[in-house]
Structure formats: C-alpha cells, structure tokens
Simulated assay, not measured.
Amino acid sequence: MSKKTTMIDENQLQSLVHTGAGFDLIRYSSLPELLGKDAPFILYYMGKNLARKSEFNEKESIISFFQYFGWGQLSLVKEKKKETFFELSGHVIEKRLHNPSLEVDFRMEAGFIAEAIQILKDTPCECIEEIDKKNNLVTFHVMNT
C-alpha cells in the first residue's frame, strides 16, 4: 500500500456525489461501535488529519469544505486575536440533532476546524464544540494554544 498523500482540493470535492444518510449511519452508528470509548478522541484526530490533506487559502475555504463534505452550513461568527467562533447550522444539522436513533457529536468537525485554523494562522489550535438543539446549531470555539 502506498503512503503517498494526495491533497484534497475544492474542485475534487465538487465532483463527488453524496447523500448524508450513508455518512450518518457510518459516522454515528458503526464508527462508535468499532472505536469504543476512544471514539471522540479518534474522530477529533480524524478531522485534523483530513484538514492536513486539504488546501486552504483563507477561512472561507473552510466554509466551502464543510459544504462539500455535507457537514452543514458553517459560518464565521466572531474572530479575536487568539479565538475564532464558528456556527454550524442548516437542514442536515437539524435532522441529525433531532433523530432519536442517532447519538450525534461533532468531534470530527471540531478537529477539522482546529487544524484548518492552525494551518492558516501557523499556530497551534484546539477546538471545542457546543450543541444547541433548541436552535439547531453547533458552536465551535477555536483557541490558539
């Protein structure tokens, strides 16, 4: 097996056809069973790894990648010197949050955002997420460490 890393760009993502159902079943049902108690940690680092293979020019690129991945509508809410806040919303987020058969988290997305901001700012970053079911959104708080 080759260890060559292929970078992912927006043009490649635009050519993919996806439905969220298959992704959601793998992500929220199969992976947690397979990964066990380490699932949140591994998913966070899977997101970071995916971001390392992606090409970013600006924060708007992160927003585009979320759209192409089918992860929902990401918006930049606020930016401070050492902190950045994003919100994730949209129809797909509402459906995930209110599906009684799915126990959702957004660790992969948090890892992706942390690494993407780290790449853009060239400084170590971590990200935590807060789920707001009432308003159908997820807030990501990125901190430069």
Rank of each mutant, 00 (worst) to 15 (best):
K3I: 07
T5Q: 13
T5S: 12
T6R: 12
T6H: 04
I8T: 13
I8H: 10
I8D: 04
D9N: 15
D9C: 06
E10D: 04
S15D: 12
S15F: 03
S15K: 15
L16C: 06
L16P: 01
H18K: 13
A21T: 10
G22L: 13
I26N: 09
R27P: 00
Y28K: 11
S30I: 15
S30R: 13
L31Q: 13
E33A: 14
E33R: 12
L34N: 07
L35E: 15
G36I: 07
G36M: 09
G36R: 14
K37G: 14
D38R: 15
P40L: 09
P40N: 10
Y45D: 07
Y45E: 09
Y45T: 07
M46Y: 05
G47A: 06
L50S: 08
K59F: 00
E60Y: 06
I62A: 02
I63N: 00
S64E: 04
Q67C: 10
Q67L: 04
Y68I: 06
G70A: 03
W71R: 08
G72I: 06
G72M: 05
S75K: 14
V77W: 00
K78T: 12
E79V: 09
K80V: 07
K81A: 08
T84I: 15
F86T: 05
E87T: 15
E87H: 11
S89K: 10
G90L: 06
H91M: 09
H91I: 01
V92R: 07
I93E: 02
E94I: 04
K95N: 06
K95D: 10
K95A: 12
K95T: 15
L97V: 03
N99K: 12
S101D: 11
F106A: 11
R107T: 10
M108L: 08
M108E: 14
M108K: 09
A110R: 03
F112G: 08
I113E: 00
A114F: 02
Q118K: 06
I119R: 02
I119Y: 00
L120D: 04
D122F: 03
T123S: 05
T123C: 08
P124H: 03
C125A: 08
I128R: 03
I128G: 01
I128A: 01
E129L: 04
E130G: 01
I131D: 05
D132A: 04
L137F: 14
T139M: 08
V142A: 00
M143L: 12
N144Q: 14
N144F: 07
